[in-house]
Design a protein around this nucleic acid. Structure first.
Length: 333
DNA sequence: CATCGATGTTGAG
DNA sequence: TCAACCTCGATGG
């Protein structure tokens, strides 16, 4: 589920559980054997997220660049300590989901196997998995294997004494020099969690306001703004009541600024909760009701043919640059 | 059990 | 503009 919020959460997990430790690296799948050999035995020194890209630093001025693409994923196992802000968010959100519904992208449980992260204090022994289908594996308890057995195609396994991270199906998994890493970042549009928000807003506004390209395409362009994907795009446009086909340079400046500020808002919520909460103005009761139905968690995303939650008009779906674009032709006229 | 589709990007043509 | 990349849950027979 990799839009920007997921990548920032993953970087936090690495920061907390790998940075400052010696890391063993391997490529069980065999498609990153050379790179893993270079990393093997080094100390992790930093974890950064910019948009949908994550950079993991190692001693010797070496960076691992990972882009999860459409279906990549990190699976964490072992004694994973959870970022307090994430833990508190999960505790507040609860774990009431069933199979097939959205979960926060990390499922967190304590050593007793219970969801008890309502406390915001000292980090506790916990386990983390990106996929809920693997909730049955867990801490290296007596009789359990360590390191965990490799399941399926694992491009890269990073292992400390007590933590394990498996990378599957990434679009990019590459070693970089510091210069290469900076060059990669330099090509990306602003990320509200990386760049100074005001400066990021100015960069975003300046670019959008001179492009003839549709705002629907600009929001998805990682060189214009970092981290927005197909879900956030549709939802941001709806929240702004903006026609996706409007050329960037014809969108009123104040509306462009509002788009950036709203992205800043949604990204922060997404990082905090692990969910793409785009109807954050709903009351708790409304939110629970919305969450109960798979197609009611967003304003328009994945709601083709269903009535708009605001005006009742049928939400339409169309192809834009070979991605599905959902919008309300009435609210976003 | 086979097929499809997905919160994405790259590069060939 | 579109296939390829490469993974897996959802869907249908």
């Amino acid at each position: 589920m990799p839009e920007g919020h997921s990548v920032h959460r993953i970087a936090r997990q690495f920061d907390r559980n790998f940075v400052g430790r010696l890391v063993g690296a391997s490529s069980p799948q065999g498609r990153f054997t050379e790179g893993a050999a270079v990393l093997d035995g080094r100390e992790a020194t930093a974890a950064k997220a910019v948009g949908k890209q994550m950079f993991l630093g190692f001693d010797g001025d070496l960076w691992l660049r990972v882009h999860l693409g459409l279906y990549g994923a990190w699976d964490f196992a072992g004694e994973i300590q959870v970022d307090p802000t994430i833990a508190s968010a999960n505790g507040r959100m609860g774990q009431t989901n069933q199979r097939g519904t959205d979960l926060p992208d990390e499922t967190v449980m304590d050593a007793a196997g219970e969801n008890s992260l309502t406390s915001i204090g000292a980090p506790r022994r916990a386990r983390v998995h990106v996929r809920m289908s693997e909730q049955t594996t867990g801490l290296p308890e007596e009789g359990e294997q360590w390191p965990p057995p490799v399941v399926g195609q694992v491009r890269l396994r990073l292992l400390t004494e007590s933590t394990c991270a498996d990378l599957r199906g990434p679009t990019a998994c590459q070693l970089q020099t510091p210069e290469e890493m900076l060059a990669t970042i330099a090509k990306l549009g602003p990320d509200p969690l990386v760049d100074d928000p005001a400066a990021g807003e100015e960069r975003f506004v300046a670019v959008v306001r001179r492009k003839p390209t549709s705002i629907g395409l600009l929001l998805m362009d990682q060189n214009v703004v970092s981290g927005i994907g197909n879900v956030y795009r549709a939802e941001l446009l709806f929240r702004a009541r903006l026609n996706p086909h409007a050329p960037g340079r014809e969108v009123p400046e104040e509306l462009v600024r509002e788009l950036w500020r709203d992205w800043t808002r949604l990204l922060a919520i997404g990082v905090e909760t692990g969910q793409m909460m785009t109807m954050d103005d709903l009351s708790p009761q409304e939110w629970r009701a919305a969450m109960a139905s798979r197609d009611d968690r967003h304003w328009v995303y994945h709601r083709a043919g269903l009535p708009c939650r605001v005006c009742g008009t049928h939400v339409v779906v169309e192809e834009m640059a070979s991605r599905k674009l959902y919008w309300c032709p009435s609210c976003q006229a």
